[in-house]
Design a protein around this nucleic acid. Structure first.
Lengths: 135, 135, 135, 135
DNA sequence: GTGGTCTAGACCACG
DNA sequence: GTGGTCTAGACCACA
């Protein structure tokens, strides 16, 4: 379920954060569903528990999960709050990468297709949950 | 012209790389145009010359500029090579961010518009040069 | 193991790059094998750690090694990509040197033998590892 | 006759050295033939005379030309002297590049062909002189 | 003047 | 412990 790339320049804890965000976004992990315990996950992926802790802390800071002392960590309900700032940063980052992609020769059509695919994948999250073929 | 965030987790030299890539992509800096000298820029943004050097080296490694000892650093001609690996990584990163944006409530339409804008801005680079409203 | 010429016009960090490339090419250093730490090597060859870093960065940029913060630097798996541009430059450089060698009196036969030897040494990398007679 | 790449990382004076060495090796410039004067060449290739001077000095140091004060610079007779050291260095450099080429996937056959071509080009120098189609 | 190399030594992020 | 960033300041090669 978790394939970490120990060789990547990306720190392990960030790889974990990304994995979980992806699973939550695709609705594989549903609201209030419990995440694996720190120790269990640490053992499963053979990584230092501190690293898992760091990942969970980061996910909580970004509002994707919430932790209850003594009980565990759970998927947070979809954020309807005005995380306007976060979104603006995200949009800016996407725009930067789009410009770079176009500069490197990627066509507008391909990028449009990318948006379309992402949208379909996100909206069809519930289906994916019962038919998991995500990365 | 260069607003650096010294507090950012992103290292200064990478912020500079991004700035310059953006300026080159938007055709504000044109082929063979000279970049500010290492020392001059270092003084302007009050950063150590070594840091500027590092940024310039990275830009050179990525093919955006070329440096000639004793003469200066210049914008490289547009890369015709298809750096397939680079593009694949870029696409993957964009897709990840698109999914996140959609999850945070950004509509497909807005993202499509973003692609369209980026395409227009990239293609109309020459116009932007005389009408500078970029960051 | 590492004999550096501090007087050479070739910068120290490039001498290190060459040494390591040679060791990797001859399969003395094998995939995923760890390189000496920046600090350790710096101390061993009595050179500033920054200089070692520069060498490692260059090796990483050329795809010979990968570095993971907090873990170390390791030999990268053999590159399957055909870096056409790099190869073309390499071929041109070889041809130039071959012409010069011939001009200085080296016979075609000797050069052919050189190619043959290089091929044998590269292909028999594993054997060389247990029978080290390289520089 | 002289196409310098002002963009190259290689210093201009070294590019000139290489050009002249190539012309001498291919026998386009023959023994005791006079080289263009510093000032004339400087004007022709629009380069600082100091740069030409430096190139000529380097060529003289390597034994490819000799200078007569007040008369000019001339192609030196083929060196039959024991420049054994130079040759050894050259051979070592060639071997290093051959290994790298093989490592990057160039076949032994291609390299053999390269040697053969170089040999033919060098030996056929006299013919080339009257039929100049070199770079 | 330009870019490039190197040192000495500090500080940070990661595991 | 690891690699990575940054500064301050010196010195070199090139044009």
């Amino acid at each position: 379920m978790f394939e970490l790339d120990l060789r990547s320049r990306d720190p392990i804890y960030l790889q974990l954060v990304d994995k979980f965000k992806s699973l939550i976004i695709k609705n594989v992990l549903k609201t209030d569903e419990q995440l694996p315990s720190v120790r269990a996950l640490a053992q499963q992926v053979t990584v230092n528990p501190n690293t898992i802790q760091k990942a969970y802390r980061e996910l909580e800071a970004q509002g994707y999960i919430y932790s209850v002392t003594g009980k565990g960590s759970f998927v947070a309900p979809t954020q309807e709050q005005d995380n306007d700032e976060t979104i603006q940063e995200l949009i800016a980052e996407i725009k930067k990468l789009l410009l770079e992609a176009i500069f490197l020769g990627v066509s507008q059509g391909e990028l449009m297709k990318l948006v379309s695919e992402a949208d379909k994948q996100a909206k069809g999250g519930l289906d994916n949950a019962s038919n998991p073929r995500f990365n």
